[in-house]
């Protein structure tokens, strides 16, 4: 299997000149295509920071993040935005859908940014929303959807850009048990059937139990890395 993500001596230090705090400390990871990986660890262990660094949302203090051979830490801001658009899918803890857009428009939006032709966009939006079980909610605004439904739209949105991998920050944190289980089923099916690479940070034991690889972070360092 090919390596999609590689981090080399990746560190993120806050207050480097006064009292240095290592959010991420010398992390070396290799994530292969199709892995279903959970980043776990106590609060403040650096899970979200590591996801942000891998997603190019934050700049590391040192080290590299190499995605499909491209060191994204060396990309200029506009190039990095463009790289994210075409290579990385995001699912946020608080869903973060655009409230003024319908479910269909939220999913379609990212393809519009990619200049995907209208016919292809429409087809893909319908396929994705049906895939996450929201074929009948296409024209609903986020406020008209439950938390679980919103998170499923977020997953569809993340998949819409045909990314190399999806980063999900505590995707089940705001969901009830049934919604969380449903979301995990969808993500696991996408991983299994479409070989989509998932990396999620989580505290949720249900998510950890479903992960095929569990990386434990403590004080910004990788404490264990177990493949199942």
């Amino acid at each position: 299997m090919s390596i999609v993500i590689e981090t080399q001596n990746l560190s993120k230090v806050y207050n480097p000149d006064t009292i240095p705090v290592y959010a991420v400390n010398q992390v070396n990871l290799k994530i292969q295509r199709g892995e279903f990986t959970a980043l776990v660890g106590p609060s403040g262990s650096g899970k979200t920071t590591l996801l942000n660094l891998i997603g190019g949302l934050d700049k590391p203090s040192s080290g590299k993040v190499i995605i499909n051979g491209t060191d994204i830490t060396q990309l200029r801001p506009n190039k990095l935005i463009d790289f994210r658009l075409h290579n990385i899918g995001f699912v946020f803890q608080s869903f973060n859908l655009i409230p003024v857009l319908t479910a269909r428009e939220n999913v379609e939006f990212i393809m519009l940014l990619q200049n995907v032709p209208a016919a292809e966009r429409n087809k893909r939006v319908e396929t994705l929303l049906q895939h996450v079980g929201l074929g009948d909610k296409m024209n609903a605004r986020p406020a008209q959807l439950s938390g679980g439904q919103q998170q499923r739209v977020a997953v569809a949105r993340a998949l819409a850009s045909k990314p190399q991998f999806i980063l999900a920050d505590e995707p089940t944190a705001n969901l009830d048990s049934a919604a969380a289980a449903n979301l995990l089923d969808i993500m696991a099916a996408l991983n299994r059937e479409e070989n989509m690479t998932f990396i999620f940070s989580t505290h949720d034991q249900r998510v950890i139990d479903r992960a095929l690889r569990v990386i434990t972070l403590v004080d910004g360092k990788v404490e264990s890395d177990i493949r199942r």
Binding site: N78, I81, R84, L85, H86, F90, F92, I98, I110, L113
Partner: peptide, 12 residues
């Protein structure tokens, strides 16, 4: 919301 748009790939 603006942060999300930027994260998703909306350029400046």
């Amino acid at each position: 919301e603006i942060g999300v748009l930027m994260s998703l790939g909306m350029n400046k």
